[in-house]
Simulated assay, not measured.
Amino acid sequence: MKGDALDPAGLIREAYRIDGITAQDCRVIFLDWAIKSDAPDDLPAGIKKLLTQYADQPAQHPMTQTLRAGLEDAAKPTRRGGRAGRQPAS
């Protein structure tokens, strides 16, 4: 059975069905879902819809935690490449 419009391959749904799934497994599934997303420019909206769709799932489930982490802002990289990256910070 395939998924729905939000999760066409049913990846997220299946993650919730797998007993003993790990956080690492959920991150891989999430990345696959994000790559295959129809609207990559609006991933936060898709993640919010998924969280609403699976609101009945435990808050401590690794997929729920992964989805919540997907809404957080990514840290800006601080390392510079080349020679500047090898020099101690002033």
Rank of each mutant, 00 (worst) to 15 (best):
T66I: 05
A89C: 01
A75L: 08
D7S: 02
E14P: 00
A39Q: 14
I47W: 01
I29P: 11
V28A: 10
R68G: 01
A74T: 04
H61V: 05
L71H: 11
T78E: 10
D32N: 09
A15L: 05
I12G: 06
Q24F: 09
T52Y: 06
T78F: 06
R80F: 15
D42H: 12
D4T: 01
T22V: 05
A75Y: 00
P88A: 02
A55Y: 07
T52L: 14
P40S: 06
I47G: 04
V28D: 07
L51N: 10
D32S: 15
P8K: 07
P88N: 05
T64Y: 03
R83E: 15
W33S: 09
A5V: 04
L6C: 07
R83W: 13
I12D: 05
R83Y: 12
M63I: 06
A45F: 05
D7A: 03
A45E: 13
G46A: 09
C26P: 00
A74K: 07
K2V: 12
E72F: 00
C26W: 06
Q65V: 12
L11K: 02
Q57T: 02
Q24W: 08
G3L: 06
M63D: 03
Q53I: 01
G81F: 15
G3C: 08
D4R: 02
G10R: 06
C26L: 10
A75D: 03
I29S: 11
A59I: 07
Y16L: 01
I29V: 14
F30L: 09
T22R: 00
G46Y: 01
S90E: 06
K2Y: 12
P62T: 08
A15P: 09
T22S: 15
T66H: 06
A69Y: 13
